[in-house]
Amino acid sequence: MLLSLAYKEWIKIRWAYLVSLAIGLGIILSIFLNLRLLVEFNSLKELWNYIIFKNYLFYSQFRFIPLLIGLILGIAQFVPEIQNLRLKLALHLPIEETKTLFFMVFYGFALLTAIFLFFYLILVSISSSYFPPDITNTIFITLLPWYTAGYAVYFFASVIIIEQIWVRRISISLFAVLLISQFFHTMNHNAYIKIIIPIFLFVILLSTLIITSGYRFKRGLR
């Protein structure tokens, strides 16, 4: 049955997913070409120096991409569910309602993780062909706040879209924006290293927020 749910989610978001993939790959290609040009017109040693001592992030263009992808996926997955209150169909399926809702966000989370991991690996492979491991190793923690923002916006999208009362939608959106702004404080290498893991875990907890919206939907708060 869950496999079947996954099938439905996939049909719903496959185009959005491919678009996300294309956007990400496009940006990474542009990052790569940019890097090539920098190395061509300057010297690699200057670039190293710039990265190590001036906090230059060669992939800074990628900064808001996870956020965008999280948003695209959230919209693609949840807007069709509330058009004509179609969520009723999913909640009427012979599965525990919480299970259905959790599965939906889990599925999105898994797809996000897959695409994020894929982009990370490409960036790592680009980086390791130009830079020593000490530089490449910082990519993970430096990216993680941006990825966390992507997950957060996705989870918030699920809550906000399924919620039917506009006042609550808007107030949750406001707090979502404020929270997500906290992931973009600086562009220093590994600046979030002290707290990003607990923050990431907290953001994973936000996956449960869909249940409140689903519960309110079930109770008829429309």
Binding site: K8, I11, K12, P80, N84, L85, R86, K88, L89
Partner: peptide, 10 residues
């Protein structure tokens, strides 16, 4: 459902 709502993306 009223209006024969179904998964119209399928």
């Amino acid at each position: 459902i009223e209006g024969h709502v179904q998964y119209s993306f399928m």
